[in-house]
């Protein structure tokens, strides 16, 4: 089977130097493969390492063991070892990530936040702003908010800005960390629609969905992340 993203023997632990160097293992020997057009939902109890896995896949956490292979352009990149410059390129062109929380940049309006990754990929400013506008409108963010910095937005409004930014560029691989957590029913439907469209165009998606209904409607299969025994 062909794959878009594939983790092989992935291991991750945290060494807390400020707490006497105690080491907390989180992932070990993890094997995961996601195909184009497939949506895999991570399952497991809270604290099992689902978010850690997502962050490793995005390169936000450094993988300690194993490989994280990503089809990027015509080649394959190992995220576990890629340098910072390659990772920037990967994140620009191939790998998208929607986190639960928006990292607010002072004074930058919502529209610019959504358009920014589009322009980074070379889209003309006008076209990028138009696409950003359409995406925010689809996610029911009131037009009067489009030109305001999201610092004062509600949690749900901020998350919709985040979703618009994550879905607008049509990344081949998308990581979704509780994308519907603070959304109402109507907007949940919009997100489900966005995920299905992404799958239809061949995007590989890995998600954490606490909302069972959403999960059941978008995920093709579950991938269980299980807590490691305490003393490793």
């Amino acid at each position: 089977m062909s794959w878009s993203l594939r983790a092989e023997g992935l291991g991750k632990s945290f060494t807390l130097h400020l707490q006497g160097g105690v080491t907390m293992p989180v992932l070990r020997g993890l094997e995961l493969s996601v195909a184009p057009g497939e949506c895999v939902a991570l399952s497991g109890p809270s604290g099992a390492g689902k978010s850690t896995l997502m962050r490793c896949l995005y390169g936000n956490y450094g993988a300690e063991a194993g490989r994280i292979l990503l089809r990027h352009g015509d080649g394959v990149v190992d995220i576990a070892t890629a340098d910072a410059r390659t990772m920037r390129e990967v994140r620009r062109d191939t790998l998208g990530y929607v986190s639960q929380f928006l990292r607010v940049i002072p004074r930058v309006p919502a529209l610019e936040i959504v358009a920014e990754p589009l322009m980074a990929r070379g889209m003309a400013r006008d076209a990028a702003l138009a696409k950003a506008e359409a995406m925010l409108t689809r996610l029911n963010l009131p037009a009067r908010l489009h030109h305001l910095p999201p610092a004062t937005f509600s949690g749900g409004e901020q998350q919709r800005v985040n979703l618009a930014r994550g879905f607008a560029p049509a990344y081949p691989v998308l990581l979704l960390d509780e994308p519907t957590a603070s959304l109402d029913a109507a907007n949940r439907e919009v997100v489900i629609g966005l995920i299905r469209e992404a799958k239809d165009r061949g995007a590989a998606i890995i998600g954490i969905f606490h909302d069972a209904e959403v999960r059941d409607r978008v995920a093709d299969r579950l991938f269980a992340v299980t807590p490691l025994p305490e003393a490793a």
Partner: peptide, 8 residues
């Protein structure tokens, strides 16, 4: 990467 160094 900035976020890698600061978050992990």
């Amino acid at each position: 990467l900035t976020d890698r160094v600061l978050d992990d």
